[in-house]
Design a protein around this nucleic acid. Structure first.
Lengths: 143, 143
DNA sequence: ACTGAACAGGACCAATTAAGTCCGCTATCC
DNA sequence: GGATAGCGGACTTAATTGGTCCTGTTCAGT
């Protein structure tokens, strides 16, 4: 699996915050309950995202988390990288000296290409493309 | 990591067999030693590839493994799939009922796209593209 | 100032998967 | 029939992921 459960949780939490970013801070407890994510675990994920500046956390009563970026300004690639770290496609186990490949390592080339393609797809979407709930701003009559 | 160490071992073993497929069966011991792969572990991998018909195994003295396909006829995608199983990019952890996504699941779409792109890259290479050693048939004067 | 709501962060534990080993069995060549 | 080589199942170990717990610290409201 390329993307972990952590990414799934984190991404959904960001969608939740994105949907409610007009309404002030949302508590960890609320997000965890609504999205059915283990609270303590989600706490770690949001802490991590807070350090990276994706969300802002406010302590004390009436505190919680708010999205710190414009949903349309952060790509899926950025989000997943910030949660899971860079997508590693293949790691060469051989050391320089015992790599028996002929000439330039074609493997590196191939897997570099794979990484690029993955990145390209993920960079094509932003948080604004994802919603957990219908947007209040969207005309319901259009259904 | 998308691709496991098992894939690395298996792929390199296939390159080895590809390079020497004119010279008859190669023993597990030879491959393991040359490529510095734990023998018992490589055995499992080659067994697996034998079941899939990628290599053929011959028991008894003067036995060993031979490549059972034309190197140019098997893609990197096929090889990696046969060793590691299909590349799973993302697994939705929510059940149908608790998936809170709005409308059609955009996630599925995105990650399907990612899988397609990975497949496209890997399908563009065959075993014939990879070599552990210089090909004898290739003019050395060209260097 | 005190209280209680809320996040922070380190240490810890559990579950899963990946990686690797062991050993008796079977086929094959000479 | 003995030596050689792969087969295959059970097992162990190591690494990673997923998750918990507990003790802070910050801060709004009184």
């Amino acid at each position: 699996m390329i993307f972990s459960r952590k990414s799934d949780y984190g991404l959904r939490a960001l969608m939740y915050l994105s949907d409610r970013r007009a309404k002030g801070p949302v508590t960890l407890t609320e997000i965890a309950e609504r999205l059915m994510i283990p609270k303590a675990f989600l706490s770690k994920i949001l802490q991590q995202l807070a350090k990276k500046g994706v969300v802002r956390s406010l302590k004390g009563p009436s505190g919680g988390f708010v999205l710190a970026v414009e949903p349309a300004e952060i790509t899926l690639q950025e989000i997943l990288t910030e949660i899971d770290g860079p997508t590693r496609v293949f790691e060469c186990f051989a050391t320089e000296s015992d790599c028996t490949l002929y000439g330039d390592c074609l493997m590196r080339e191939v897997f570099g290409e794979v990484e690029d393609q993955i990145g390209k797809v993920l960079a094509g979407y932003t948080l604004a493309d994802f919603h957990l709930t219908p947007r209040a701003s969207e005309s319901p009559a259009k259904a």
